[in-house]
Write a protein that binds this DNA or RNA. Sequence first.
RNA 1: GAGGGUAUAGCUCAGUUGGUUUAGAGCGCUUGCUUGACAGGCAAGAGGUCGACAGUUCGAAUCUGCCUAUCCUCACCA
Length: 879
Amino acid sequence: MEISKNFAATEIEGKWYDHWMSKGYFHSEPDEREPFTILIPPPNVTGILHMGHMLNNTIQDILIRKARLDGKNACWVPGTDHASIATEAKVVKWLRAEKGIKKSDLTRQEFMDYAHIWKDKYGGIILNQLKKLGASCDWDRTAFTLDEVRSEHVQKAFIDLYEKGLLYRDYRMINWDPVAKTVLSNEEVIRKDVQAQLSYIEYRFADGSEGGITIATQRPETIMADVAIAVNPKDEKYKDLVGKMVLIPLIDKAIPIIADNHVDLEFGTGALKITPAHAPEDYAIGKTHGLEVINILNEDATINEAGQILVGEDRFVARKKINKMLAESGHLQKLEDYTTNIGRSERTDAVVEPRLSLQWYVNMKELGKKALDAVMMDEVQFYPANFKNTYRHWLENIQDWCISRQLWWGHRIPVWYLGDDVFVANSIEEAIIKAKEKTGNQSLTIDDLKQDDDALDTWFSSWLWPISVFDGFSGSKEFDYYYPTNVLVTGWDIIFLWVARMIMSGYEWYDQKPFEKVYFTGMVRDQQRRKMSKSLGNSPDALKLIEKFGADGVRFGMLSSSPAGGDLLFDEKLCEQGRNFTNKLWNALKLLKGFEIDKSLPQPEVNVLAIQWFENKKNHILTEMARDFEQFRLSESLVRLYSFIWGDFCSWYLEMIKPAYQQPIDVATYEATVEIFSELMTILHPFMPFLTEEIWHLLKERKDGEDCVVSTWPTIGTFDKTLDKQIELTKEVIGKVRDIRNKNGLKKREPLTLLAQKSEETTNLLSAKGIQNLLIKLGDLEKIELVDQDIEGTSVSFGAGTGKYFVPLNLTIDVEAETKRLEEELKRAKGFVMGIEKKLSNERFVSNAPEAVVAMERKKLADGLARIKNIEESLEALG
RNA sequence: GAGGGUAUAGCUCAGUUGGUUUAGAGCGCUUGCUUGACAGGCAAGAGGUCGACAGUUCGAAUCUGCCUAUCCUCACCA
């Protein structure tokens, strides 16, 4: 069979993905096997694949493919969420641009119809992109937070919480997004320090007497909503002013000076303007003093009629203008630079406005308690575990969750109002029945009830994901079988928004965790450690990367440097390394397939040894990998496997068994190598699925249904340390011989003689089966001899293990350089021995340390002394 | 203001309950290779007083304390 020069990733990826799909390998049904379940953190339905998704989904795919190879019933459920705010904004924009329709001209139903059209057209792209990455999801189970089953769950959850008294409606100061025109939960507000200015404004006495009081504010545009000026009652300088009236500049409205303990004497001038409608603390102060609330901002944060001046201006434009006006009227005393913390909407980036409104809340005190315990007691395990601290900190200071949103794209709140009466129900018909019962008025009709206009927070559907994807509220057998799931793989940035709330919902409805383990991935950052983002434009195009390096190469790149929880500094070079690895394996395949097989040939000793050694080492690697997987150290596992395949398999094993040029190979070795290679492909498969499937099939004829993706993870045999050490020593000797060639400008193929000074170690080594032939083959030697003593004259000596070796050369030796080299070696060896002697001469070490440790130190000492002796002899021989 | 993380080679990071020949990998760097699978490669090599100080211990990169640097999370001070 002719094998192409390079691994053609693109063609092969499509071919195998289709094959896997047609065989239904990714589909799972409950059966008697142990399930292994992962739920995808649903990406935004309108989103496209970015680096974070690639990392996150590569990890999930590795875990799921490994579980499949382990013989478990692997089920990875994909899906998307409807991303209320982001999607509604996109739909509104699309309607305006392409259809010339304003949202306000549409009924709710019309808008929803358009939104669904839009979603069907542009949504779900990301799921197809995941296929390119190789994600082995059970696509038959694809769920969407706004589909029928998931919507039923949302409604049931809402009603159930209401009936339990865990859900309520309240009038409070909330976070308002003036672009999306909706309330946001605290978690959806991103706070950052920014440079701002404090305006120092003088409010003059209303009675016309000289002077006034000066306040410092960051928001001068809100002065029209002021209802008082507050000072601290302990503040000597303002003591006499309390009770006096002052005039709001520009609008000349009289407001009182009041005293309140909450005012900080040190900040600004020590006088605080009270604007209850536009600042949370002011609202609180206003309430205790029974002050009026004057709202001067519209929904879109422009000034309204109540403001009297600057009506219709945006708040930031108004801020600039009013500063100017105040300066002109002589009220502005100064502007001062100042750093403050402002919140922006996570989705629209608009500066969030405090606003008073009536919203629905979930009581978190109750729900949070069990969720906190579950993680603290390790019922749900966090990887890395230190996220437990963050989690606890949040849950211990948790505030109630505002779940209503002033949007249409989402689950409409199942609440109907009749005057002041509230009816929470599954449908309007049910609500009517409840209303009739409550009021005793049997003549009520649908038209008498008004449904709540708001929709629910997207996270209110996401938090039910582990339940709803299996139709849990209907008591499905899927739910019984797959729940709780095994592991959740997600970024730590949504630990509160999502992870914590899923744990809450799991315990609330089933008194059971939603997942055993949570693996928090790191954030993908660029070379300057900046988070990758659209606005910075520092995020590479995911699909282009796949085109350039192949999905396997990109998967390798994403993973090879991403410890859990830490950051990943993305560099294309990592993907390049992955692509190079696929190339290396491809060439190894080409080499093997290029061998001519001679069935009459006996198996050489060297090959027997090579196979034995490689199988042995494989057991060691598998043991380590098992531990890696248990602890989600996937990056380490891949690196380990990478160096095993590249270093041990390609550089050593294949060289060991490689026949001489144009010579055939014996059949036993060939077949053993095909098996070894196949096994390596199975082991590598979770990380690089496409390449491994391709090679697996090219290695030998496979029957229908025999595919790498559904092959069996090898069982782990015993590891013989002695055998491994012996080969390592042989490799060391070969390396030293090669070094001698390098340093003396000898050709690689120039035959050399190797002499080993007789010792227990050298005798053992050279008498072991196959070792001498191995040395000859890979060291390009013509003969090997054991000698009794030092060789005088033109030979170079070296140490390996504790042994001493010589290579006679027909060259004059550079005595000076050689002496220098040996002296340095001697220095090092002496330092080594000194350290150990110090340890061993310590009475307390010998009596306290475990025997094995002391014995090891004695061995190290003996070996060290032997090495010193060797070096000293060589120095002597040099003269 | 509260809490947390990190500090190991030029860079990015491993180092698994303290002891395995006086610290490992990848990239980068140096030297040599038109070797018959592979230059997306082969072979060899240089490079680190494990942030500072103090302590616990027979023994510390690993545990404790303090300091320094740096990153992050939470928090209504105008």
